[in-house]
Amino acid sequence: MGLEATLPADGFMTTRLTSAINWARRSSVWPMPFATACCGIELMASASSRFDLARFGAEVMRFSPRQADLMLVAGRVSVKMMPVLQRIYEQMCEPKWVVSMGACASTGGVFDTYAVVQGIDQYIPVDVYVPGCPPRPETLIEGIMAIQRIIDADNLPRDPDGLRQPLGITVEPTYTPRPIPVGISAASRA
């Protein structure tokens, strides 16, 4: 009683390539947490069993920027941390998105000092702002759902003539396999 029941008798379904790719991207967002303060506790709570961020395909927290496509900046960012944050953002794979979580990351919060950045959007592009001090886990989940809506609206790349550019999904091998030096047989060891 699943997808098989809704398919026609001939057993295939049609869709647009854009929709299928965006569905796959939306359903497998890998966040890179950059949590520095109390917002980090709420970020951790959103992945717990009570709030279950896994329902939205974002439970795989990646601590390597090369494996992440969503940066979650949770908490205040000092001036000394900003170059690190920018370096992590630059190392993330494309397409990438940023969520600014809480008042401190979005505007500096109550820390109106020379040492705290007054909004990370001055240094890296922010896609979604999650309000609160600290925001509740439900609010963060709503922010991730907003990122998923952004991904759904994304289109495939096109050249100036309107033709679809290749996605580069298939990677050709960079080596030629050698032949096996010893023949393989299914003979028993007797």
Rank of each mutant, 00 (worst) to 15 (best):
L3F: 15
E4H: 00
A5Y: 01
T6I: 09
L7E: 04
L7C: 07
L7N: 00
P8C: 00
P8I: 00
G11I: 05
F12V: 01
T18D: 12
W23V: 06
A24G: 11
R25A: 11
R26K: 13
R26W: 13
S28M: 08
W30Q: 10
P31E: 04
P33W: 01
T36W: 12
T36N: 09
C39D: 05
G40I: 00
I41T: 04
A45M: 11
S46N: 02
A47P: 04
S49K: 14
R50D: 07
A54M: 08
A58I: 02
R62D: 09
F63T: 13
S64M: 04
S64T: 10
P65N: 07
P65F: 04
Q67D: 10
A68D: 06
L72H: 03
V73P: 05
V73R: 05
A74S: 14
G75W: 01
S78I: 00
V79T: 13
P83C: 04
P83L: 07
P83Y: 05
V84Q: 07
Q86P: 05
Y89R: 09
E90V: 02
E90K: 15
E90N: 13
Q91P: 01
P95R: 03
W97G: 00
W97L: 06
V98G: 03
V99A: 10
S100A: 15
S100D: 03
G102E: 02
G102H: 03
G102R: 04
A103K: 06
A103Y: 06
C104N: 06
A105N: 10
A105I: 08
A105R: 14
A105D: 11
A105Y: 14
G109W: 11
G109D: 14
T113R: 03
A115P: 08
A115H: 10
A115Q: 12
Q118S: 10
I120H: 01
D121P: 10
Y123C: 09
I124V: 15
P125L: 13
V126C: 02
P131D: 02
C133A: 08
R136W: 03
E138A: 05
T139G: 06
L140R: 02
I141R: 05
A146D: 08
I150P: 04
D152G: 11
D152T: 15
D154K: 15
N155L: 13
N155K: 15
D159N: 15
D159H: 00
G162F: 09
R164F: 13
P166T: 12
L167V: 04
G168W: 01
I169V: 11
T170R: 10
E172K: 11
E172M: 11
T174V: 12
Y175T: 09
P179Y: 06
P181F: 10
S185F: 01
A186G: 14
A187H: 14
R189E: 06
